[in-house]
C-alpha cells in the first residue's frame, strides 16, 4: 500500500514536469497550470502504481552507473549507425542474418526492458522476444558471428548487463 502511494506521487511529479516543460516554459498561465495538475492527478490515479514495484535503498553509486550507461549507450548508438550505413552503402550487402539466443541474469521487469532496448539500439542486433522465466532473449543478428549461446551472450549482452544490473537490481 505504502509503495503504491509512493509510486503514484513519483508519477504525478514526472507527468507534471513533462506537462510544464511542454506548455509553460517562457510564459505563465494559471489556467493551463490547473489543467496540468488535474491531468497529472488523473494519470497518477489510473496508471500510477506500475512504475515502482520494488523497494530499494538509495545508493550513490547508482547515479554514477546511470551516467556511465547513458555515455556508453550513445557511443554504441553511434557505432550502430556507422555499421548500418556501411552495410547499406556496400554494393554487395555483406549480411549474414539469423536469430540467436542469449542468456541473462537480470530478473526485474525494468532491467529486462532496458537490456532489450539497449540491445536493439546497439550494432547489428534487435530483440525479438524475451523469455522471462528462463532469463533468455532471442536476438535477431544482422551479421551472425557465432551461434553458440554463451559466446553470443558474451558478445551481445556483455556490454550492458553489468551496468544495468548495478542500476536496476
Amino acid at each position: 500500500m505504502k509503495l503504491k502511494t509512493k509510486s503514484r506521487i513519483v508519477v504525478f511529479i514526472l507527468s507534471f514536469i513533462t506537462y510544464f516543460t511542454i506548455t509553460q516554459i517562457g510564459r505563465f498561465d494559471w489556467q493551463e497550470l490547473i489543467v496540468g495538475v488535474i491531468i497529472s492527478l488523473i494519470t497518477s490515479v489510473i496508471a500510477g502504481d506500475i512504475l515502482i514495484v520494488i523497494q530499494r535503498k538509495f545508493k550513490i553509486s547508482r547515479i554514477f552507473y546511470t551516467i556511465l550507461y547513458i555515455f556508453r549507450l550513445f557511443v554504441e548508438i553511434f557505432k550502430a549507425n556507422i555499421h548500418v550505413a556501411y552495410l547499406v552503402i556496400h554494393p554487395k550487402l555483406p549480411i549474414k542474418p539469423g536469430i540467436v539466443k542469449i542468456k541473462t541474469g537480470l530478473k526485474s521487469d525494468s532491467g529486462l526492458t532496458m537490456l532489450a532496448n539497449s540491445i536493439t539500439l546497439t550494432p547489428g542486433t534487435m530483440t525479438v522476444d524475451i523469455n522471462k522465466e528462463k532469463g533468455e532473449l532471442y536476438i535477431h543478428w544482422i551479421d551472425v558471428k557465432t551461434s553458440d549461446v554463451d559466446k553470443a551472450t558474451e558478445l551481445i549482452g556483455g556490454r550492458f548487463e553489468k551496468i544495468i544490473k548495478e542500476i536496476f537490481e
Binding site: I77, F78, A80, N81, V84, A85, L87, V88, L93, I95, P97, I99, T120, L121, G124, M126, V128, H140, I142
Partner: peptide, 19 residues
Amino acid sequence: VRLPDVYNRLQAATKCVTF
C-alpha cells in the same frame, strides 16, 4: 529499400531513423 526481409529492414529503420 535495399535489405532483404522484414527483420533486417526493421534494424535499419529503427537504428538510423532513431539516431
